[in-house]
């Protein structure tokens, strides 16, 4: 990354959502030990679209349903998202996608 520093909160979420760029996402992903692949990007862009469309960061269930609807039933499963974003997919993916922390994430 260039010299300009980007402000993150204590948990690693972007403070200013406008700061997000795909390059920044690569760095945010490294910070949480995620190696970005096309499969990851597909989810990250889906998540950003979800947020732009509905103005809310989805928790696990709505995320799974949205992936199911847009990318098909093979990918629309929590196990698939867990392999891409281990631990808590909605939180991890929201971090990388530069979205607010999903409220009341399980």
């Amino acid at each position: 990354m260039t010299n300009h520093t980007v402000a993150l909160d204590g948990e690693g979420y972007l403070l200013n959502l406008q700061d997000w760029t795909p390059e920044l996402a690569e760095h945010l992903a490294k910070d949480v030990d995620v190696e970005m692949s096309d499969a990851h990007w597909e989810i990250i862009y889906l998540l950003r679209e979800f947020y732009q469309e509905f103005e809310v960061s989805p928790a696990m269930r709505p995320l799974v349903k949205a992936v199911n609807k847009k990318l098909g039933v093979e990918k629309g499963r929590s196990i698939y998202l867990m392999t891409l974003f281990p631990g808590s997919p909605p939180k991890l993916a929201a971090k990388i996608a530069g979205l607010p922390k999903p409220a009341n994430c399980l």
Binding site: F54, E55, P58, R61, A66
Partner: peptide
């Protein structure tokens, strides 16, 4: 404020 209208279309993802 936030555009809550936008959330209406997202409600289906929450059942």
């Amino acid at each position: 404020g936030k555009n809550l209208h936008k959330l209406l279309d997202g409600l289906e993802f929450y059942d």
